[in-house]
Design a protein around this nucleic acid. Structure first.
Length: 806
RNA sequence: GCGGGCGUGAUGAAAUUGGUAGACAUGCAAGAUUUAGGUUCUUGUGAAGCGAUUCGUGUGGGUUCGAGUCCCACCGCCCGUACCA
């Protein structure tokens, strides 16, 4: 009988989707398990193999957990707002909603062709007004709690998208999406105060089962540092506030640096003798793009202020003040005290500009030759009056206390994390439900009026002046103030792509609710997500943003848990044949549809799981795909060509079966899918060797079914085991039956392998040593020797140490 | 620079976490079946040697009865970050 994968796959998919086999409800008799994968952006290219890896992996886990007896929620949806759709719409004059609809149809079809066990009744789409109504609602709650605000500030501006970007969206100084240069632009923007949650976003990582890489990356991005803020007087009479992580080095501060944007400069300008040079430097710094700034930062630049000096508060010394773009306006106070003896950047700057370098921590090399930056016990304070003789660690609290007592400083924690720039000057996003009234200022829309629908527009093109296309829709823009009833204007910017995905996992719990974003019962039942798999590239974007929103929703009593995701794992990328990144220009893109047509979805699934370590990048190989097809063919032929008698496990296969059940069960949970499949291949090899009973075949189909569900269903039906394989209980094993009666053990002499012996399983050490010495080869080696030591590793090997007889 | 990870046959990779290196596949070779190709099946496949043996997990050293695994130094690759005071 031929393995007609195409007919078999269609048959079972039709049955699953028609009968809603994987639909789930809040059924409290079973333990719940919420498995989540990142929903795709429905691009015009359709699903690619990069999607198939995480989706197949979690589908395998979900299918196995269902068989384990869990009540499994495994949903899918579409993160459909965003630029590619909008750009396609502009080019082809089709409404983005239509483009989105068509792309989603295609994606759903492709996902269904792969046989993923999603509960399709729970599908969500972020561009659906019934969905983004709640995205807008959350924004209003943030606004009410003072966590959303509008401010004018220099922002990242993509020159090609004509749109602002969040810090997280700028990669190497260029736009994460299109690769165009990013420049700084003063714009009025909606911001979300993610910084208010910085400490909690760090602290609460501790209780989570996230892979370590994700935790450290998030911690680094949030970038907590502890230190002190210190007031320096100036000869102009103004105070200059600086932030330092090394207050212990205050006596070594020989100059100061302000960022070129520092506000005191405006006030001081008239009293500066070199104001022209200062202004020229400011202008130059402002015009640099991020990319230029990054490239140029090897060489320090700056201008010394001629006419104003700073005063070091610990010794009253007058020290020069510079401006330089190595000091950032957006971090700390935008001003630093420079301690060239103990900071790499200050040292480099001091060498170039001839500033004094005074050692205040001894223990390193000559500070005139290189800075000494160690913060541990190796450094001892010197040239620092009352701090002399202390270690850096001990000196910090002493000097901090001293500053506090004098009223010129205090301990301070800083974070690298910035507030989230939340508006975009584009059409295809959630409208921000805010109204501006000349009299009343910014006013929220009445919640009962939500959703605020995106209006139909003539052109989706972003405007060159940096305004959203919505700004041209005067009918839509002009409205009345919810507060005073007077004439007012709507906000015309839209939300960033990351808005809809920041809470979608909550909507899956109760996707059709039109009263709340999800009911309390559903939220209590399903929260938190038990296992979330997604890409490393979202660690400081989606994953951080959604943790922030979830914490906010927890604070206002909407969700029952502090954290959205209990466990986070991550998959490696799928590369093209030869190990290069898949791309259209290289022509090495693998389309899942082609693979399915040629080999079937089950082969595709099995291969993508067999390809290698799940967490690491893996290169596609057509030959290896064939190998997996061959494996499934072998299973099919074994099941249909041979006769299988007996419901019990056959004696010849019993040990292999118990071992394989154990291995496959453990490996799926540990995401070691490649070795799980290897174990199944071995089992099939055993069946070919020994023959297989009906019972043997049954357990094979159960174990293989999460990987190759269609074929296993068909063979299950053909064999007449009854019911569907996906609804059966996962097989169990007995530890005692994973061992054979006898065990082969290696015999080493002085650590070198010399022989193999077979002993009864569980033999004690003396028996093993005796058996080893009785071995012909070993006996030969032992001639004229005396056994001085033997090491037995139970069930593995015995190592004998001889020395010549005296 | 800094932080994290990795380096194993011709190739993708395994290795019970200090215990027989190369499981399972791919590729290749020989043979069987076939008119032939394909499929399928069998056998072999780290290197050297007729052989017993010897060597072998990026390089060099160390700890250990025993090291792919632990420690030190170096080389190479990948990812993250980017003047965060």
């Amino acid at each position: 009988m031929k393995y007609d994968f195409s007919a078999i796959e269609q048959k079972w998919q039709q049955k699953w989707w028609a009968e809603k086999t994987f639909a789930c409800t809040e059924d409290s008799s079973k333990k719940k398990f919420y498995a989540l994968v990142e929903f795709p952006y429905p691009s015009g290219q359709g699903l690619h193999v990069g999607h198939a890896r995480p989706y197949t992996a979690m589908d395998v886990v979900a299918r196995k957990r269902r068989m384990d007896g869990y009540n499994v929620l495994f949903p899918m949806g579409y993160d459909a707002f965003g630029l590619p759709t909008e750009n396609y719409a502009i080019k082809n004059h089709i409404h983005p909603a239509k483009v989105t609809h068509d792309n989603i149809e295609n994606f759903r079809k492709q996902l269904q062709m792969l046989g993923y066990s999603f509960d399709w009744d729970r599908e969500v789409n972020t561009t659906d007004p019934s969905y983004y109504k709640w995205t807008q609602w959350i924004f209003l709650q943030l606004w009410k709690k003072g966590l959303a605000y509008k401010t004018t500030m220099p922002v990242n501006w993509c020159t090609s998208c004509k749109c602002v970007l969040a810090n997280e969206e700028v990669v190497d100084g260029v736009c994460e999406r299109c690769g165009s240069p990013v420049i700084r632009k003063e714009k009025s923007q909606w911001m979300l105060k993610i910084t208010e949650y910085a400490q909690r976003l760090i602290d609460d990582l501790d209780g989570l089962d996230f892979i370590e890489r994700v935790k450290t990356q998030q911690k680094n991005w949030i970038g907590r540092s502890t230190g002190a803020e210190v007031v320096f007087k100036s000869t102009a009479g103004d105070d200059i506030l600086v932030y330092t992580t090394r207050p212990d080095t205050l006596f070594g501060a020989t100059y100061m640096v302000l960022s070129p944007e520092h506000e005191l400069l405006k006030k001081w300008m008239p009293m500066l003798k070199n104001s022209e040079a200062v202004q020229a430097y400011q202008k130059e710094a402002a015009s640099k793009s991020d990319l230029e700034r990054a490239e140029l930062n090897k060489e320090k630049t700056g201008v010394c202020l001629d006419g104003v000096k700073g005063i070091n508060p610990v010794n009253g010394k007058e020290i020069p003040i510079f401006i330089s773009d190595y000091v950032l306006a957006t971090y700390g106070t935008g001003a630093i005290m420079a301690v060239p003896a103990h900071d790499d950047r200050d040292w480099e700057f001091a060498k170039k500009f001839g500033c004094e370098i005074i050692e205040v921590v001894s223990g390193g090399e000559d500070v005139q030759q290189a800075p000494f930056t160690a913060k541990d016990e190796t450094g001892i304070l010197t040239n620092s009056e009352f701090l002399n003789g202390m270690t850096v660690k001990d000196a910090i609290p002493v000097i901090t206390k001293w500053l506090e007592d004098k009223g010129i400083g205090h301990a301070k924690v800083n974070y690298k994390l910035r507030d989230w720039v939340f508006s975009r000057q584009r059409y295809w996003g959630e409208p921000i439900p805010m109204i501006y009234c000349e009299k009343c200022g910014w006013q929220p829309m009445d919640e009962s009026q939500l959703p605020l629908l995106l209006p139909e527009v003539e052109s989706y093109e972003p405007t060159d002046d940096g305004e959203s296309p919505l700004s041209k829709m005067t009918d839509w823009v002009n409205t009345t103030c919810p507060c005073c009833g007077g004439a007012a204007k709507r906000e015309t910017d839209t939300m960033p792509q990351w808005a809809g995905s920041s809470w979608y996992f909550l909507r899956y719990m109760d996707p059709h609710n039109d009263k709340e974003l999800a009911s309390q019962e559903a939220l209590k039942f399903w929260s938190p997500v038990d296992w979330y798999n997604g890409g490393m590239e979202h660690t400081t974007l989606h994953l951080l943003y959604s943790r922030f929103w979830h914490k906010f929703l927890y604070d206002i009593g909407v969700v029952p848990t502090k954290e959205p995701y209990a466990k986070r794992t991550s998959h490696g990328m799928i590369l093209g044949e030869g190990g290069e990144k898949m791309s259209k220009s290289r022509g090495n893109v693998i389309n899942p549809n082609d693979v399915i047509a040629q080999y079937g979805a089950d082969t595709m699934r099995t291969y993508i799981m067999f390809i290698g370590d799940f967490e690491k990048a893996a290169a596609w190989s057509d030959n290896a795909v064939k190998g997996c097809k061959r494996f499934l063919d072998r299973v099919w032929n074994l099941a249909t060509d041979q006769e299988h008698v007996g419901e019990d496990y056959s004696a010849a296969n019993e040990v292999s079966i118990h071992r394989t059940i154990k291995k496959v069960s453990e490996d799926i949970e540990a995401m070691k899918f490649n070795t799980a499949i290897a174990a199944l291949m071995s089992l099939v090899n055993d069946y070919y060797q020994n023959g297989a009973s009906r019972g043997d075949m049954k357990v094979l189909l159960l174990l293989l079914s999460p990987f190759a569900p269609h074929m296993c269903e068909e063979l299950w039906e053909l064999a007449g085991y009854g019911g569907q394989v996906c609804l059966q209980a996962w097989p169990t094993y007995e530890e005692a039956k994973t061992v054979t009666a006898t065990t082969q053990m290696a015999v080493q002499v002085g650590g070198k392998l010399r022989a193999n012996i077979v002993v009864p399983t569980g033999s004690d050490d003396e028996t093993v040593v005796a058996a080893a010495l009785a071995n012909e080869k070993i006996a030969k080696l032992a001639e004229g020797m005396e056994l001085v030591k033997s090491i037995v590793v139970k069930g593995r090997l015995v190592n004998l140490i001889f020395k010549p007889k005296a």
